[in-house]
Design a protein around this nucleic acid. Sequence first.
DNA 1: ATGGCTATCCCTGATAGA
Length: 293
Amino acid sequence: MSVKFTAPSGRFGGHFPGFTDGTGGLTKNLIKIVTWNVNSVGQRLDRMLAFLEREAPDFLCLQELKGADEKFPMEAVVAAGYQAEVFGQKAYNGVAILSKIKPVSVSRNFGDGVDDPAARFISATYEMGVGIKPLTVMCGYFPNGQSIGSEKYIYKLEWFQRLRKYLDTHHKPDDLLALVGDFNVAPADIDVYDPVVWREHIHTSIRERQALHQVVGFGLIDTFRHLYPDDPGYSWWDYRQMSFLQNKGLRIDLIYATASLAELCRDVRVDRNERKGEKPSDHAPVIAAFELP
DNA sequence: ATGGCTATCCCTGATAGA
């Protein structure tokens, strides 16, 4: 698939250095889509509110809320100028999409008749204005899989298949669509700090990567990897062993876009600062910016 | 590589995450 977009110069040198019109003025019609596994939205509320203030994303996709809907901090989110589509559950999983505008439609999980109580997927579609197609933002917390060959591993592989079927059923490859989230798969060895240690490990096994490839085959582009073919771009570091200080990470938080959206991508970056300081999530936010026509 | 952290609720131990 040929997509004409390239990385701005001065990568990671600042806040989206490519986002000027050449005269110092900000490019117009820029939207930011963020994915962030917060590992409990309650524990991360202060950080999340500061992030909203600082980055002002148009869409913030959250994973691992770790609480039922009534525990979601809706008042604080609304006070910050956002509305939220929440899909929570007690103790585990849970996803949400925060946005400045209201969606025209929202769906939760796949509606495929499978008895699956895990709240892992939410999709919302937004009208972006005259002359622009509606934008669909999908937020997924992909199953962890625990260990290769386990029941949870089989469930994980099936979950990818169900997602592909959902895409085929509800969307077209030429839709303006972003699929973001914690994929719990490192797509290739460059996305892993030590591919030898992690060889055929959960998150790197061939079957997981094939399952991801099947989803990508719908017509999706890994925006970060497309722009930065040589940058590891880790987004997760284990809490233990001081992994972050040693940069022993994985790139598992991904922002995929259909070709029509990927063409509009101007930069993607990992907000590593969010992994520092007091009480971080073990995942950093990944931020992509798109210039709408 | 046993576990090492952090979070949840059946909350002072078990379970899950990645």
